[in-house]
Nucleic acid binder design. Structure first.
Length: 591
RNA sequence: GCUCUCGUAGCUCAGUGGAUAGAGCACUUGCUUGCGGAGCAAGGGGUCGCGCGUUCGAGUCGCGCCGAGAGCGCCA
């Protein structure tokens, strides 16, 4: 938000370097001024002092020289436009903002931009984010939650940063697991209908049963292959069963997506990939990239390390077709990757898939690179995230049926938040309470998944998931409610723009500072693909608002402070709502 | 065996090569004639896994070790 001022000072610093015959820095790094309680910008001169010493070949005391340079520079700058003062402190150049000028600029910009405050200009690039990827005929559990929430938030953040976004889902509706389920269904549950509630739980239970039964049944594998073959031969009975059971899962997913407030622009399905994948595999064999070992009773594979002439194992081997000629998911991923580029002319194709598939994606992307798609492969990115475990490092397993069902979690969280509302705000009408309870419950579930580094394993336990205190979404929503409450009591429109003429309190400046950080946080979160920059800022902004709330009266304040503070409250409310919206979290006005 | 990830307060986690490493939870204490106390303020608690290196400067970068987890030819 202060790019202009920054650019101006940078120009001055470069001019200073030239005048003093110093090496000109390529980049000038800015940070906040710590400990001062004042609001401004800071940069250090150590690097410059060290560079100068290295170039001259003479031994220099870097700390001393940095202090000297900072002082000279401060003297040269004087008091530039918009800044109250400039100071040299221990080798740092500190520029202190003329707070009223900047404060008013921040507030004006937030209120003028509204829900789009913080959004960047269009970058003219189209990015696909693929996420969720649930498997039909399996349970939808808390392990899938991280993926869905992370992907959705990331898509929002990239969109806000200025990219055109295509939200894609790739439904796992094909492969051996599907036929394993059908095999078990035909043997033990033929004709059964799924229950009304928790469809995916029922599907998952049958899947776990199928896994158990298969282990005990030596003929099972053969029977499953037979079903697979019948599907291949377009056997009506199997096709009908396949479509019918698949639809049960899809209905269950749609229910969950609507509950979680998640939407997609494009659905891909594994079963659609089979044919194009097989055609593509034939081409790879012709090109000599894939090796056909089927005549010897083997598979079709891409021996990546061998093709690349690597001595150590790195990419290993990607298996594309089984010995019985059916295709594997590696083959489908080859086809899908190209279809995406063909359909949307993407500038970037992102896969939000858990870290255990890192090698798989390395293999897929490298194979396509070798097959002549090097340009496209520069634009793909597997964004890995760690799994969600249960307490005691218990792995969530569809195969063994050890899952915490997502719908159960949503119900629990909603019930819990309704109970808290009853306690804290007993006067609230039941219908309003239920709506708000859901907003808070969902937020509490989503926030911790987004506030954690993607590469860290998350542990799900009920106590933490349902803890609504402290660094959690309800805290942020509460700050938003307080802001709404003040504006509601004020009643009429917030007063028109005004530069503050009262002495800004430290907590006012801190709050404005946090609000002003949103545009940069969005750009950084998008560049690094990290939602936690937004969760952190949302929390810090809420904290700053609560501090302000305690220290600065608004409605009781004297004019002109009252008018400015009303506008500040409206800005804080907007900034909080915008952060939460990026995270896929709603901002209630009462709770 | 090879590859990848993680290791910061009792616990869960932040921390852009820069000034005095921060939050939340838990624990102790205080704050409501005041805009919503789901809040605020204060307190204790740290060999940033260990070592070497790069650098003016390392929790942050590199290498090595230790510990934990994951992946590695016909599941997805």
């Amino acid at each position: 938000m202060f790019e202009q001022e920054r650019a101006l000072i940078e120009k001055e610093i470069r001019a200073f370097c030239q005048a003093e015959s110093l090496p000109t820095p390529a980049e000038i790094h800015w940070s906040q001024i710590p400990f001062s309680g004042e609001w401004g910008l800071s940069t250090s001169l150590f690097q410059l002092a060290a560079d100068e010493g290295r170039l001259s070949g003479k031994k220099t005391n870097v700390a001393q020289r940095a202090t000297e340079l900072a002082e000279k520079l401060a003297a040269r700058l004087g008091a530039p436009e918009g800044f109250a003062r400039v100071a040299a402190v221990k080798g740092y150049l500190n520029l202190y903002f003329a707070a009223p000028v900047f404060a008013s600029r921040v507030v004006e910009e937030v209120l003028a931009s509204g829900p789009r405050y913080g959004w960047g200009a269009s970058k003219g690039q189209r990015v696909m984010v693929e996420y969720s990827q649930p498997n039909t005929l399996k349970a939808f559990h808390v392990g899938h939650l991280r993926n869905m929430i992370l992907g959705a938030a990331l898509a929002n953040i990239l969109e806000a940063a200025g990219y055109e976004i295509v939200r894609a889902n790739y439904i796992g509706d094909f492969g051996k697991d599907v036929f394993k389920w059908l095999w078990n269904y035909l043997k033990r549950h033929n004709g059964e209908q799924p229950p009304m509630q928790d469809v995916t739980r029922w599907m998952g239970d049958l899947y776990a049963e199928a896994s158990r039964e298969l282990e005990a049944d030596p003929k099972g594998e053969g029977e499953i292959r037979e079903l697979f073959a019948r599907w291949d031969a377009e056997d009506d009975e199997i096709r009908e069963l396949y479509w019918r059971t698949r639809q049960w899962s899809l209905d269950g997913f749609n229910e969950i997506y609507s509950q979680m407030d998640t939407r997609f622009d494009r659905f891909y399905y594994e079963h659609e990939m089979e044919k194009p994948a097989k055609v593509f595999v034939e081409q790879l064999i012709e090109k000599g990239i894939a090796t056909d070992e089927r005549p010897q009773g083997g598979t079709v594979v891409v021996k990546l390390d061998e093709l690349l002439g690597l001595k150590e194992e790195k990419y290993r081997v990607l298996v594309l077709l089984r010995s019985d000629n059916t295709s594997l998911y590696g083959a489908w991923d080859l086809a899908l990757a190209l279809i995406k580029f063909k359909e949307y002319h993407l500038d970037k194709s992102i896969y939000v898939v858990d870290v255990r598939q890192s090698l798989h994606f390395k293999q897929v992307f490298k194979t396509l690179e070798l097959a002549g798609y090097a340009e496209e492969m520069k634009k793909v990115l597997h964004l890995p995230y760690e799994v969600v475990n249960l307490p005691g490092n218990v792995i969530i397993s569809s195969r063994e049926g050890v899952v915490v069902l997502l719908e159960e979690l949503i119900r629990e969280a909603t019930a819990r938040s309704a109970a808290i509302i009853n306690e804290k705000n007993p006067g609230l009408a039941a219908s309003v309470r239920d709506t708000v309870a859901k907003q808070i419950g969902l937020a509490a579930i989503k926030y911790p998944m987004l506030a954690r580094e993607n590469t860290k394993i998350a542990t799900f336990d009920w106590e933490t998931a349902l803890d609504f205190n402290g660094q959690a979404a309800p805290y942020i929503q509460y700050a938003h409610v307080r802001a709404s409450s003040i504006l509601g009591r004020h009643g009429s429109q917030v007063p028109p723009s005004a530069v503050p003429t009262h002495d800004l309190a430290p907590s006012e400046i801190e709050l404005i500072d946090r609000i002003s950080q949103l545009p940069e946080a969005i750009q950084r979160a998008a560049a690094e693909y990290k939602t936690l920059h937004i969760t952190n800022l949302a929390y810090e902004t809420a904290k700053a608002f609560n501090d302000f709330y305690n220290q600065c009266p608004v409605l009781q304040a004297e004019q002109p402070a009252r008018d400015f503070r009303l506008r500040l409250v409206a800005s804080a409310k907007q900034a909080l709502a915008n952060c939460l919206a990026l995270l896929g979290i709603q901002s209630p006005d009462i709770m």
